[in-house]
Design a binder for these strands. Structure first.
Lengths: 191, 191
DNA sequence: GTCTATAGGAGGATAGAC
DNA sequence: GTCTATCCTCCTATAGAC
């Protein structure tokens, strides 16, 4: 029962974070969305920051599950493309929580959260291994530091281009994903 | 005198917006940075949103000036690269104001600001012309809709990869710019 | 147009009963 | 653990004297 309730809370937080971001999200809204009193929320989570952290842990777990299910037989480049595609699908579906990159109290809470940091490390290690393998077999440019590639892939998970194109209404979600995947891996220049 | 004072205000706002973003910036901070009382600020600008809008107008003007000075004899691709490089330099220098893409009252203020909208239109038209010319001469992929290219270039002006790499401390600002320019135009894949 | 002082309200967090 | 009611801090914005 407690787990079910807390899942409902984290799900509501996740949606609100994806929709309006951390600063614009209010704890009152979360409570209203879950259908309980605000004080009850604080029996489950000690602060707004911890609510957001729980949502981040949730999405990180989902990423770990998806990435872990990717085939070791596919090429590292295919796995990287599949990983980026997955994050874009989540974002276009309105399920990717978005946090301000500047908020310091939130950063502190996240960095103190072992579940989140462990997940982040595992995901980074897995992506990092694929990146190095892809550079080794020549599919990803060897001129780029692996860390720069990793950051670039992470950045695609919160790329505003996705929302802009979605708002434009000229393309389906699938088309948008193909476009952004293409600009990410192939670049803007003609090949 | 009045113009000088207002320039000082807008400059302070610009720095604070670049440093902490709109939500985290407080009007008290702006007043303290300028060295005047908060009430005096409100004699110059009617709201916090208008302060931010003034900073955006300022950076848009700077962009117009820079883009306008680019040579018509250089290739459209070179001009696009120069434009993106300029925005990255501004961002790495801590002079690129950053606004939340979600805040609605701020969006309304911006969209109601004729100076801002005119600047945005002119910049978009200029970039759009270069994009189409670059696609016509085959340097930028014809498979990509011009609007998607435009959005992608705009997104590079607020790409978190720049800050991440800068925080890492492994690369100089110039190296970071070359890296991100390369991932943007050449893509991650080997060419 | 600058100041001091304060109104007004939003929102995170808590007290205390049940 | 859930509720109602409230606290308290922060921050935007304004009043009013000079």
């Amino acid at each position: 029962m407690l787990k079910v309730r807390e899942d409902a809370i984290v799900h509501a937080v996740n949606r609100l974070l994806a929709e309006k971001g951390f600063d614009a999200m209010t704890v009152d809204e979360v409570a209203a969305k879950v259908g309980i009193a605000k004080a009850s929320l604080y029996k489950h989570f000690p602060s707004k920051e911890d609510l957001a952290a729980a949502a981040m842990v949730r999405v990180m777990r989902r990423a770990q599950e998806f990435f872990g299910a990717l085939s070791a037989e596919d090429s590292p480049l295919d796995n990287l493309r599949a990983a980026v595609r997955w994050t874009m699908e989540v974002k276009l579906a309105g399920d990717m929580p978005s946090l301000p990159s500047q908020n310091s109290s939130l950063r502190a809470t996240l960095m103190a959260n072992k579940h989140y940091m462990d997940g982040l490390m595992e995901v980074s290690d897995r992506l990092g291994a694929w990146i190095e393998a892809a550079q080794a077999n020549g599919s990803i440019s060897r001129k780029l530091p692996a860390i720069a590639v990793l950051y670039t892939l992470y950045a695609r998970a919160c790329d505003p281009v996705l929302e802009f194109l979605q708002m434009g209404g000229q393309h389906s979600d699938d088309e948008i994903i193909e476009l952004v995947l293409s600009t990410c891996f192939d670049g803007l220049n003609t090949r």
